[in-house]
Design a protein around this nucleic acid. Structure first.
Lengths: 226, 226
DNA sequence: GCAAAAATATGATATAAATCATATTTTATG
DNA sequence: CATAAAATATGATTTATATCATATTTTTGC
């Protein structure tokens, strides 16, 4: 699985937030990996061996509840760090990460990453900020699940995806997901998600074309959320 | 509201995680505050002026959805840091904090706190770890809201409170909350919460005495969650 | 290029939990 | 201590959404 030097020591979260003179150390320690579509990068319950930086492709971060049910917590894209959810007190990944397309990433073992944190206070600070933002987001989601109906949550989901991934020339959101994955991200079932997005389509608020979704009336989606 | 030197430079999150030679600087900058039961320490939407460290009393951290609905995200106790949810990119508190009893706390202005982070890498690292743990917790709650029924969530709520606050000699959980607050923490309505905890009482899994709750059969609560 | 698997589509039904309504008890407060 | 306000208690009703069932279309792998 190892591959050549795909890392340019510039683009990833780690390289962006390190002291210049630390880069050679990264150069020595990094391991580039290629993961095929549908394969797991790590799995919930695995001991945390390290941290991954995503160069290319998309990754879903998800977790199972029981045997059947699952929830998607995050979609990662180029430049993102993956596996930081495992950096809490107990060093076990609380989530799985699965490649949505062919993915190229850089693996940094946990020992070297911890050293990097010690050497680069800016890295630690930036990571702290990332967590702070993610926590804020997660807690907003908690409230949305408690207090908004599914349609509003679907609206929120679409707005978030547009914000995170942007849209192409034709206005379609720049990420391709199955309806089941969208449902698992919105925190509902496939059937209900389908019904809600169909409603939104009939109301001309969104436009669907296969797996592609375009937001036609952003204001109306925002109004649904309140 | 200012008061004498209640801080012993030892017990709070900040003092615990700072270099010894930084303590005199804290001494100079800290401001002790007393907040009466029911009063707000800060409110969602307020610009982040600083961080609070709790010496005495209990605090609920909560947020409104719409005008009516609310959600409790966290209960803080002695030794805890409050206000760190405001340290993300946009410097506005995403939550409110309200004293549950008379509360004594220590206020550190944001500028000095940021400097403290720069001077004390260990502080930044520990705070990062705190966020990592909180994020993990928050994301588990998201899944619980999506995939567990209310009774299981009530069970989880009680177990969490016991874990965080412990129990007294008679076995009652060491925190006194209204049923409405418990419901807002479990992510349900007062009525439903009441029904669920009444069921648990009838099943002899918990014991209720006014506002006090004792867990009689922890294993059964855990089984409810799966 | 074909078979199997996965994803999409949609109707019917069940049900958990919110909402509404109201009475009682406890706690705060001037 | 009295009166208002908050919290508790519980039944009845509604509703949103999960679940079940099944048919069709699309994608994937050999």
């Amino acid at each position: 699985m190892k591959k050549g030097n795909l890392c340019n020591l510039k683009s990833c979260f780690l390289c962006r937030n390190c002291l210049k003179h630390w880069l050679p150390a990264i150069e020595v320690h990094k391991q580039n990996l290629v993961i095929k579509k549908g394969q797991k990068i790590f799995e919930e319950g695995d001991p945390v061996k390290g941290i991954y930086f995503l160069f290319k492709g998309r990754v879903k971060v998800h977790r199972k509840w029981g045997d059947e049910k699952q929830l998607i917590l995050h979609f990662a894209q180029e430049g993102d760090i993956i596996g930081y959810r495992g950096l809490g007190s107990n060093k076990v990944y609380p989530v799985s990460a699965t490649a949505l397309d062919e993915v190229i990433l850089c693996f940094i073992d946990i020992a070297f990453f911890e050293t990097s944190l010690q050497v680069n206070p800016r890295l630690t600070y930036t990571l702290m900020q990332l967590y702070a933002n993610e926590l804020q987001l997660a807690e907003r989601r908690i409230g949305n699940l408690v207090h908004l109906d599914v349609k509003a949550r679907v609206a929120e989901t679409l707005l978030m995806l547009k914000k995170d991934f942007g849209q192409n020339q034709e206005g379609y959101i720049n990420i391709t997901l199955t309806k089941q994955d969208l449902a698992s991200y919105a925190g509902t079932t496939y059937e209900t998600f389908f019904r809600m997005i169909t409603e939104l389509e009939q109301e001309k608020i969104v436009l669907l074309s296969g797996k592609d979704i375009a937001i036609l009336k952003e204001a109306k989606l925002e109004k649904l959320i309140e």
